[in-house]
Every structure is written in C-alpha cells, then in structure tokens.
C-alpha cells in the first residue's frame, strides 16, 4: 500500500485553481521529486498535504488515515514532517533547543510536572537532550549545539531544520526547496545527506526543488506539475524526455525548434 495518497485534490484561490485534480501515490521509502515551472502549484500541494490549506475537493491519506480537514499540528503528530523555503529555525533558541522542539510531539510532560520539576519531567528532559545531541551528530552539526540558531550560516540552518524535523521520527518528510541558495559543493553534500536519511532512517521524502540536477539524481520518481495540473510522472529519465515537460519548461517554440533540428 502507498504511504501517502493524494486523491484528486483541487484547491482554488478565488477563481484560480491552484491545484486541479492532482492525484499521486507515494510509496514507503521512496524519494519523490516534485518539479514544475514557477507558479505551477508545487508549494501549494505541500501546503495542502500538511494542512495549511484545506482542499476544496479530493482527499489526502497517510497510511490509510484521512488527513484532509485536520489541523497542521494534528497532521504533524500523525507522522508528517515539513521544512520550508525560508529558514524557519526558532531564532530565540540555541541549535540544541531547536532540536529538542522537534521532539515535542514525542514528549508528554505537563504544566505541573514541568513547573514543579518532578522526577518524571527531569528524566524526560534528560532523554530528549541526549537524543537531540545524537541527532545533531548524525547530520554533522554536533559542534554547533550551543550556538544561537541565528548565528548559523544559511546552509547550516537548512541542515538543522531538516534534522529537527527528522528527530521526531516522521514517516514522511516534505522538503520545500531545501537546496535553494546553496553553493554547488553544498548541493552535492546535501544529496548525500538526503540519501543517508532515506537509507538509514527509512524516511520517505518528498522534495520540491528548483535545482533540477539534484532532483534528477536522487529521486526515485518525479511528478511534474504545470498550472496546478499533473502533466507527467515517472522515473527521472522518462520525465526528462517527456515532450509535455519540455514544453512546460522551455515553451512550445523551443520544442518545435528542437524537433526540427
């Protein structure tokens, strides 16, 4: 059974259909790339999946459970993680504290236990700190644990943000343009990191990305959106040679010229 099912999802902003009957199924352990020209609905699709937007029609299911209509925090608690286009680290916290926040849904200490610092609260806190340090080490950021989050470079913030999402052990993570603004060397490192995440943690990844090289290299399958519609889906090679995809990216004329030559 597929892990994530997007079942004919339509989402309108005013009269404009940002998503128009989009349907796809993402398998367990898959790395799925989502590409498309600007404004094609990639981020909107992620937002619909994680509950920021509510679809006008259609349904989204994770592990057979319906997500449509739930709040983003409820969806997150069911095992769906998400990172954003711009860095969303909590700036008033250290790197380590940011990481511990990723464990929020895995912890249970209540107001009184926290306020009275009961033994159960202290034990849980100690365990989360331990796990957060280990998770930082996994992505090679252990040395930065006690720095303020705002002191990290752009690329480092990206990595910490992904680690913060992973630490809560989600079944699936949606990454919105994780490589945007990274140097080429960094993109290669990133590539390796995403593969390690999938291979060692068994997490399914959905990747919206403009850096086409990265998507082509690491995705098992790619979904192509254009004007809110799915125009192609398949292995990277298939998608690369799909005439509709080329047209969406390069325009009709170029395609004609290509065909002529």
């Amino acid at each position: 059974m597929s892990l994530l099912v997007v079942d004919n999802v339509t989402l309108r902003f005013g009269g404009v259909a940002a998503l128009d009957g989009v349907a796809t199924e993402i398998g367990r352990g898959e790395i799925r790339g989502i590409i498309g020209p600007n404004g094609s609905g990639k981020t909107t699709l992620l937002n619909a999946i994680c509950g920021i937007h509510r679809p006008d029609a259609g349904e989204i299911r994770l592990d057979g459970e319906k997500l449509t209509g739930l709040k983003p925090s409820e969806i997150a608690r069911r095992g769906l993680g998400r990172t954003f286009q711009t860095s969303q680290l909590f700036r008033g916290m250290t790197v380590l504290e940011n990481m511990i926040c990723g464990l929020h849904r895995r912890t249970t200490t209540g107001l009184l236990a926290a306020g009275l610092r009961l033994r159960s609260a202290r034990a849980e806190e100690a365990e989360t700190v331990e796990r957060a340090r280990a998770a930082l080490d996994f992505v090679g950021m252990g040395a930065f644990a006690d720095r303020p989050a705002s002191a990290l470079s752009f690329g480092q913030q990206r990595v910490v943000e992904i680690a913060r999402t992973l630490i809560g052990e989600p079944k699936i993570v949606l990454l919105d343009e994780p490589a945007v603004g990274l140097s080429l060397n960094r993109v290669a490192e990133f590539d390796a990191l995403l593969r390690r995440i999938r291979d060692e943690k068994g997490v399914t990844l959905v990747l919206v990305e403009h850096v086409i090289r990265l998507v082509m290299e690491i995705s098992d399958r790619i979904t192509v959106l254009n004007s809110g519609r799915k125009i192609a889906e398949g292995k990277p090679v298939e998608v690369r040679n799909n005439p509709e995809v080329i047209e969406a990216y390069l325009g009709k004329e170029l395609r004609a010229r290509r065909a002529a030559s």
Partner: peptide
C-alpha cells in the same frame, strides 16, 4: 518561544497553537 518565533514552523512540529 516556538510560537513566538514562528507559528507555522511550530505547528509543523506538532505544537498545538
């Protein structure tokens, strides 16, 4: 503090606003 610094990110980590 997470809610103060970023509501959307806080929610995406399962923090109920």
């Amino acid at each position: 503090v997470a809610i103060r610094d970023g509501e959307v990110a806080a929610e995406s980590l399962g923090i109920d606003l």
